[in-house]
Amino acid sequence: MTVAAIQAVPSVVPTELVRGRGGGGPAPKRTVVAYGFWIFILSDIVMFSGLFAAYAVLSGNTAGGPKPVELFNLRNVFIETMCLLFSSYTCGLGALSAERREPGRFLIFALFTFVLGSAFLIIEASEFASMVAKGAGPSRSAFLSSFFTLVGTHGVHVTAGLLWLVYLVAQVMTKGLRSSVLRRLLCWSLFWHALDIVWVGVFTLVYLMGVE
């Protein structure tokens, strides 16, 4: 631990008591909140696993309609993947800047994250719109129903993450980087990284295995 870190931690209880297992009382609120949110993320991924299973089972049932290879544009998928990956990177750097109490840097990284996340959503929405325009909407076949459910649920999560980010930026600007705001930022960054992990499953199972 550096000297600066010690000065930034005016602790009521001595450190060795806080770090003990049971001896120093309950774990810090930050630890409890982050662990609880980690459990939520895992349950969210379990929910996604149901949608993945439905897609894996139904992706061959095209009912005479368009097949995956006729619908997917891998160039767009690659751009989407890169958008999400770089937004995950800037999200991590933003969260790191917030932990280091650098609100200016945090806001810049939050802006990058928001722009990249929005770009992902815009590409996805235009892809959905062109598929529906081609008569390949969710009601066309079991394959398309499960495709729109899986990819759409991920898109809804990304939208929620972006709205949450706007709300957190407003909190940082009005309340500053106090510890309650930092806890929310920690939860949000976990959520955003988890969305990228789900997207790895989506582009592998849906797009790459669909067209090869």
Binding site: M1, P10, P28, T31, W38, S179, L186
Partner: peptide, 19 residues
């Protein structure tokens, strides 16, 4: 002690260490 004054750049959920 609810950890309200703690500042350490640690991004792992559920970990108490301060490094």
């Amino acid at each position: 002690m609810d950890g309200d004054n703690q500042a350490f750049p640690d991004r792992t959920p559920g970990v108490e260490e301060r490094e």
